[in-house]
Design a protein around this nucleic acid. Structure first.
Lengths: 142, 142
DNA sequence: CCATATTAGTTACATTTGAAACCATTTTCA
DNA sequence: TGAAAATGGTTTCAAATGTAACTAATATGG
């Protein structure tokens, strides 16, 4: 018998939404930034000079979403672009100084949220969760 | 240092989206039904006569989404409504025979998907995952 | 070579979604 | 009581999103 409340896919969805909303609270208001924009910033903070396609791969967002987020971030002066000599279709993306400020402000808050959430687990449990998620993510790959 | 790919909230989001998309494949095409509609059906299959607000609470969807899904399901002849004598604002919701057919068809497929996903885990690991999710869901409550 | 296929990224259109305003009814409590 | 607040549910409007079509540039195989 299917009971939504004990159904793994459903529970994952609930948890994921609650957590995303919780984190969004820490930055949405303060910086007028959406989840997709934040994800692009997070990727660029970690991998400066990556292309839009690279961002899409690493963020599991589709390329249209990335394109739009990048467009808005450039408008906001938070991201800059440099053309790629080797492949003139692709552009290298970077955080501007303002983008870096956003990243530096949000990243600790996001990590603090994660820490607060994981505080209910012991170290062993965290590792176990990590490993379980790894395997499930691999297993669920299209 | 924040690294999106190892950040729990992000990983949850990726896994949840992959899984939801995987399950949706099993019914979207076949029944022309969306995730929200399927969730309403799943709840009504389990709790016949529940109100729209009850559905929203149990499904963690917002009431606008429920209202719209119910509306579409009624149009499709898959859900029926009965007014509530005690409170004339609220209505009792039920699966029609056709709605029940959809439920009976999808539920096993959804469970099979879950089973396929969980097949990569041992029984002990499943229980561990279940317990970990419980605690995280409670911890992440607004 | 060069015609064809592929890839990076954008745009256009339709659909979905969310927030806020909105009825209608019920509850509260002064 | 009855005026104000709360609740169930719907509607409206703007913003977010997905799909498909598109441009421009690069790669490939005959």
């Amino acid at each position: 018998m299917l009971d939504l409340e004990h159904f793994l896919p459903y529970r994952l969805s609930v948890l994921s939404n609650q957590v995303s909303a919780g984190i969004a609270e820490t930055y949405a208001e303060r910086f007028g930034i959406s989840v997709t924009e934040w994800r692009v910033i997070a990727i660029l903070g970690r991998y400066p000079g990556i292309s839009a396609t690279g961002v899409a791969e690493r963020s599991a967002m589709d390329k249209v979403a990335v394109s739009r987020a990048v467009h808005r971030l450039i408008e906001q002066g938070r991201v800059s672009r440099e053309s790629n000599a080797d492949d003139r279709r692709a552009k290298h993306l970077f955080l501007s100084e303002q983008g870096r400020e956003v990243f530096d402000a949000i990243a600790p808050a996001a990590l603090a949220y994660e820490e607060r959430l994981l505080a209910v687990l012991t170290d062993d449990e965290r590792q176990a969760l990590d490993a379980l998620l790894d395997r499930l993510i691999n297993a669920s790959h299209p």
